[in-house]
Computed example of a mutant assay.
Amino acid sequence: MARIAVLGLGAIGGVVAAELAALGRHEVVVCVREPLQRLSVQRPQGTLDLPMRALTDPAQATPVDWVLLCTKAHQTASVAPWLARLCAAGTRVAVLQNGIGHAQRVGPFIGDARVVPTIVYYNGERMAPDRMRLRPAGQYEMAVEDSADGRDFTALLDGSVMRLLQTDDLATLAWRKLLINAVANPVTALTLQRQAVFRRADIAALCLDILEEAASVGRADGAQLTADEPAAIMRTLLTYPPDAGTSMYFDRLTGRALEVEALTGAIVARGQELGVRTPLNGLLQTLLRAVSESAVA
Rank of each mutant, 00 (worst) to 15 (best):
L157Y: 12
A11G: 08
L157F: 15
H26L: 06
M127F: 08
P63T: 09
C31W: 00
L165S: 03
V291Y: 09
M234E: 09
A155Q: 14
V120E: 12
Q193I: 02
I110E: 14
D158R: 09
G271P: 06
S216I: 00
V120C: 14
E273M: 12
A89Y: 04
R114Q: 14
G159F: 08
A88S: 15
G222C: 04
V32N: 15
V29K: 00
L192T: 00
Q139E: 13
G111H: 10
H74S: 04
D243K: 09
V41R: 05
A77F: 07
V116M: 06
A88Q: 12
A2P: 07
A290Q: 15
A137H: 10
S160P: 12
Q193K: 10
G107D: 09
E141G: 06
T118V: 11
P58W: 07
I110T: 11
R176D: 11
Q45C: 02
T278E: 13
Y122N: 00
A231G: 10
R25Q: 13
L179N: 05
V183A: 08
V296R: 15
Q60G: 02
A290W: 13
V41C: 14
T254Q: 15
V79C: 13
P44T: 03
L48T: 04
V116W: 03
R92H: 13
I203H: 08
A113H: 01
A113Q: 05
Y140H: 10
L23M: 11
Q37E: 15
N185K: 06
K177G: 07
D130T: 04
I4W: 09
P35I: 01
V6P: 08
V197Y: 12
D243E: 15
R135W: 08
L39K: 05
V276K: 10
A257E: 14
T118H: 07
P81G: 11
P81T: 04
R151I: 00
L69S: 01
E125W: 11
G265N: 07
S147T: 15
V217C: 10
G159Q: 03
